[in-house]
Amino acid sequence: MAKITVEQERCKGCGICIAFCPKKVIQLSKNLNPKGFFPAELINEKECTGCAICALMCPDVAIEVYRQEREKK
């Protein structure tokens, strides 16, 4: 269980997160943000592993990553 949130107003729709997402679970929204960009959004939460590569590569630090804490065995 993992997910990302993209701060819609901060995103400039550069698409770098999309290009590097290993699971291809991010795409550009169809709605313009106030800056005039189509921001990125998570489209498939089930597939997101929370690997954070998108956040690592995001030039606008617009992505936060959440992950289920692993149960200690």
Binding site: A52, A55, D60, V61, E64, Y66
Partner: peptide, 17 residues
């Protein structure tokens, strides 16, 4: 779920230009 990646405190909230 736990937040594992967030904006660092040493950045302000100002959007990059």
């Amino acid at each position: 779920m736990k937040k594992v990646f967030e904006r660092p405190k040493s950045l302000t909230d100002v959007h990059f230009t």
